[in-house]
């Protein structure tokens, strides 16, 4: 399976222009014969929306997504967008396949600490659901969702094979760490413990001094970073992954096998 990550920059609040860019990279990925392309969080709008949520959000059925839907006959597409529904706003991601919306995930954990103001503008999603794609059981998380161990537990419980994390992660560092180390730790641990692929798609570019660092990557089910996109640079990043690695990793470490009868899933008698 050939997977592309559209590690893009966006223009704040300019939905039409950003969607054209998403379409452009999707076309490139199609011509590179990729099977799936993943874009970052809020790829249609940019991140620091503040009052732009009133004008830059769109209903998921808005015609603005028609061209991408059309393209999903040739490639599966996952991208972050600012969603509007009946006067409420969500930080969402859409998975398109076969010309249709296969799944929409609404970010459940909206950061509102430090520099973050998401909870001020967006409503939280109520659940994290897994869904079947032509590649297997898939779960999408958006940025902060992935810092909650409960999200990884749901992905595990649902027997996820591909975990997609869409992100707009700002750069910071201190004397002990660089921001991306946190992402590598989280994704490698999740991949290893749960025996699935993790696709981490992060944006690039600056918004009022806040730099989104890129460095998107893919972790295999053994917890190894297979390949990593560059720091700060907008690129179409393409990697091959062998879906059979999920089975191989689970043959080697069949963690779920012994999990089913303990309290993680409820008491053993519940299953009988």
């Amino acid at each position: 399976m050939k997977i592309a990550i559209g590690q893009i920059d966006t223009i704040l609040g300019e939905v039409d222009k950003n969607i054209r860019k998403i379409e452009h990279y999707t076309d490139k990925a199609i011509s590179e014969k990729c099977d799936l392309i993943v874009f970052p969080e809020l790829a249609t709008t940019g991140y620091g929306l503040r009052d732009l949520v009133y004008t830059a959000t769109r209903e998921s059925e808005n015609g603005i997504f028609n061209s991408l839907k059309e393209k999903s006959n040739f490639i599966d597409i996952a991208f972050g967008f600012a969603e509007k529904e009946r006067g409420y706003f969500y930080n969402s991601s859409m998975y398109l396949s076969g010309g249709e919306i296969l799944h929409i995930h609404r970010k459940k954990f909206l950061p509102d600490y430090g520099m973050f103001e998401e909870q001020r503008y967006f409503s939280p999603g109520q659940s994290i659901k897994s869904f079947n794609t032509r590649f297997g059981k898939t779960t999408m998380l958006i940025c902060e969702d992935a810092f909650h161990i409960s999200s990884h537990h749901i992905a595990f419980k649902n027997q996820t094979e591909i975990l997609i994390i869409l992100s707009a992660s700002p750069f910071w560092s201190d004397h002990t760490s660089m921001k991306w180390e946190m992402w590598e730790n989280v994704c490698r641990t999740s991949a290893q413990l749960n025996g699935y692929f993790v696709i981490f798609s992060n944006r690039v570019g600056f918004e009022d001094g806040v730099g989104f660092f890129g460095k998107s990557f893919i972790v295999n089910p053994n917890g190894h970073v297979m390949d990593e996109a560059p720091f700060l640079k907008e690129v179409l990043f393409i990697t091959e992954m062998d879906l059979r690695d999920v089975e191989r990793a689970r043959l080697f470490m069949p963690i779920m096998k012994n999990e089913v009868c303990n309290e993680t899933f409820g008491k053993a008698e519940d299953r009988l």
């Binding site: 503040r50 918004e207 009022d208």
Partner: peptide
């Protein structure tokens, strides 16, 4: 205060 846009609005 509550008219809040970044400098990079539209850029």
């Amino acid at each position: 205060i509550d008219f809040r846009y970044l400098r990079d609005w539209g850029l």
